[in-house]
Amino acid sequence: MRVIGIETSCDETGIAIYDGQRRLLAHVLHSQVALHAEYGGVVPELASRDHVRKVLPLLRQVMAQADTRAADIQGVAYTAGPGLVGALLVGAAIGRSLAWAWGVPAVAIHHMEGHLLAPLLEENPPDFPFVALLVSGGHTQLVRVDGVGRYHILGESLDDAAGEAFDKTAKLLGLGYPGGPALARLAARGNPQRFHFPRPMTNRPGLDFSFSGLKTQAVNSVKQHQDDQARADIAYAFQEAVVDTLAIKCQRALRETGLQRLVVSGGVSANTLLRERLRDMTHELGAQVYYPRLEFCTDNGAMIAYAGYQRLRAGQSEPLAFFAVPRWSMNDLAPP
C-alpha cells in the first residue's frame, strides 16, 4: 500500500510518499520561517496563504522523486489538528478532495501522532510499548505508547512549551526569531558558575512541566546584569535548567512505567545538550533512547504519511466531510 502524507498544521508545508513494502519513498518540505521572521512569530493568515500556493507544486515534485503515478497511490493522509485551523484546512481540503478524485480512501491524522510514530520510519525502530517525549515550540508532553492509536498522556506542560520558552528567552537575549538554536550556541560560551535557575516541578511527584517561570527568571536576570558576558551566562543557566528538567521527568516516566525504551521527537530534540543528558540517563537505567533523523524531528510530511499508512492499512477512512481542529487531545485517539 502506497500513501501520500500532507502536513500543513503550522509554518511548514510537508509532503511525502510512504510505501508498505519499500518504506519511505520520498519527502519534500517547504519552510516558511523566513516569511514570518520579520513578525517575530507565525502570522496565521500568512501561513495559510503560503500553504495554498505550495501544496500542489510540492506534491508534483514528491511524486516525481518517488517515481509514482496517481494510479500507484492507495490512500491519502493529512494532518487535521492540532494546529492553526486556516493552515490545516488547506491540507485537509486538498487531501480529502484529491483522495476522492483518485477513488482512494483518506484519513485525518493527529499531528502529534505523526511525531510519536516518526522514529518508526528509521532503521532499528523501537518496539511498542515505549515512553515518548514530544518537545517542540508548540508542545511538551510525555506519552505512554502501547501501539498505534494507544496513547496515554503521562504529563504535559501547564504553560509554555519548552521550545516556546527557548524562543522567548532567545528573543529577550536579542537572538531574533526563532532563536532556540542560537540560544544553545550562545550558551556554549556561558559561565556555568554565575547563575543557577530552578528545575520547575521536579521537587514534587508527577510528570507535568512548567517553563514560564524560567522565562521570568531570565527576564529578571537580564534586567539586573547588563554586561555582554551575562547574556551567555543566562543562556547557559536557562538551557541547563530546561534540559535538566526534561531529563529528570523522562527518567521518572521510565521508572514509573517500568519501560525500557524512550522515544524523543519534536524540534527541541535536536538540542545537543539534551541528547547528551538523555544518553547518560538512559545508560544508567539500562534503557534505550530513540530519535527520528534530524529532519523528521520538526514538522514534516513523512510522519503523516507513515501514521496514515498505519491507519489506512487497518481499514480506517474518513467520510467526505473534512474538518480541522485547533485543539485535539491525544487521549481521544483510538486504535484504527
Binding site: E45, S48, R49, V52, V55, L56, L59, A70, V85, G86, L89, V90, A92, A93, I94, G95, R96, S97, L98, A99, W100, A101, W102
Partner: peptide, 18 residues
C-alpha cells in the same frame, strides 16, 4: 479568507486528481 481557500483547495485537489 478561509472560505475562499476552502473552495480553492477543494478545486485544486479535484483538478489535480482528475
Amino acid at each position: 479568507f478561509t472560505g475562499v481557500r476552502i473552495a480553492n483547495s477543494v478545486i485544486q485537489g479535484l483538478a489535480f486528481g482528475a
